[in-house]
Amino acid sequence: MANILVINSGSSSLKFALFDTEGPVDSGSGSSVHVLVKGQFSGLGTDRYDVSMTRHKPGISTVSPGSAPDHHTAVASLLVWLERHGLLDDIVAVGHRVVHGGRHFQQSTPLDARSVKLLEALTSLAPLHQPYSLAPIKALQTRLPDMRQIACFDTAFHAKQPKEARQFALPYPMYDRGFQRYGFHGLSYDFISRCLPEVIPDFDRDAKVIVAHLGNGASLCAIQSRQSVASTMGFTALEGLPMGTRSGAIDAGLVLHLITEEGMTPDDVSTLLYKESGLLGLSGISSDMRTLLCSDKPRAKQAIAHYCYRIAREIGSLCAAMGGVDHLVFTAGIGEHAAPVRERVVAQCDWLGMRLDASANQANQACISASDSQIGVWVIPTDEERVIAADCAAMLR
């Protein structure tokens, strides 16, 4: 057996999945990795931590790894559980989702002390993500120092965008120093791009596709020929669409004003933009779209309206970047499950000839566009862990 353990670590969660690499090629993903075990530690760093399991391999007991209060304990509990079930010795590598690869890492990369140090230096560019991506890496370096670890980057999928899409209008030498648009959610977009030929009948590989990754973090990506053409996120995972607690795009002059005129410190502004804005800030109620959709309060309704407006507006921008669009794909938590959000976005894209099949949308079907729609509209669940496993397996061959 040659198994790969995948860890996808967030600020308060740690998703894990164990993949077998010796099975037949999967037609949907184009890879030969097959999930054996999948689960998630949630509520890390809070007093409501827990663990849930989705099991795929027969014979594994129903007792899941013990719940853990933090990332290091979660990793330790997971290793003990894997060893107890005789699965640890078959692991040949651990693949990690790392949000920001900066300009040094443009493809999946084996990890060593030097690479981890370079990734630590990017923490200020992804403060809600990078420390938590690195936490299980460091824990495994301590507990299993000989284990091969591989980082797979959310920024890598966008690395081949045209230079004009990556540049800021700053003095050119700053671009060479790394001040550029990186884009994020690349592992999710990579998975969707691999699935398109299997999901969409008679799919043209040169089709112009916009993918809407809508979750607590949210972004859009224009994809053609399986390449990222443009994306809404930039230098950090703060830019672009409003998100659960992040502001999305904001006038840089407003940030300067908050510091020079309102007396806010850089830390104050960081807290405001990363943790107190977005759906939470607009609504004053919650960062969770499910809660807002159930609310009858005016600010909740206005937060949803602004969110959908920004998505529709950015779809127009990405259409300009590609010179049109053939398909719109919704994915991630909100994209896969919030039918009212999809309905509102598509309605605001009516000018593109985009039409929705209301019943298909309510049922979260794969194809939700009406028969007379000029644009295909789809719902495709994402699977970042599978992409990580496939990339790691390719490196091990």
Rank of each mutant, 00 (worst) to 15 (best):
C294N: 09
K138W: 07
A74S: 03
D146C: 00
T291W: 01
Y309L: 08
A159E: 15
V255S: 06
G66H: 08
Q365M: 09
R386Q: 10
T155R: 06
A207I: 03
M147A: 00
W378C: 01
K117A: 07
L280T: 01
E120R: 11
L256H: 04
A303H: 05
S9P: 01
S283F: 11
A207C: 05
G86A: 04
K163A: 11
R177C: 15
S270L: 14
C308Y: 04
Q149H: 08
A332S: 08
F41P: 06
L128K: 02
P201Y: 12
H100G: 05
H72Q: 08
D296V: 15
S32D: 09
V209A: 07
I200H: 03
L122Y: 06
Q167I: 12
I200Y: 01
C195S: 07
G66A: 13
V255I: 13
G244K: 01
G316P: 03
A17C: 09
R342D: 03
S12R: 04
F191V: 15
G28L: 13
G324R: 13
E261A: 09
E198H: 02
E120F: 03
V99R: 10
N361C: 15
A394T: 15
A366M: 12
A347M: 05
P136W: 09
H34F: 11
D70N: 08
S193L: 14
Q302S: 11
D90N: 05
L214C: 11
C392K: 06
T271L: 14
M264A: 15
D154C: 06
P266G: 02
L328D: 05
G178S: 06
L5D: 00
S373K: 03
S67N: 11
K208D: 13
F168Y: 15
V99Y: 05
G278L: 04
D372M: 02
Y307K: 15
A237S: 03
Y172K: 15
A390Y: 07
S52H: 12
A249D: 07
F153H: 02
M264R: 06
L187A: 06
N3L: 01
L396D: 00
S193M: 04
C349K: 10
P298K: 14
V25F: 15
L293E: 15
T155V: 13
R205P: 00
S77T: 13
L258T: 11
L79W: 10
E276L: 12
L238D: 00
G240S: 08
L122A: 10
V80W: 10
C221Q: 05
Q149N: 00
V75I: 15
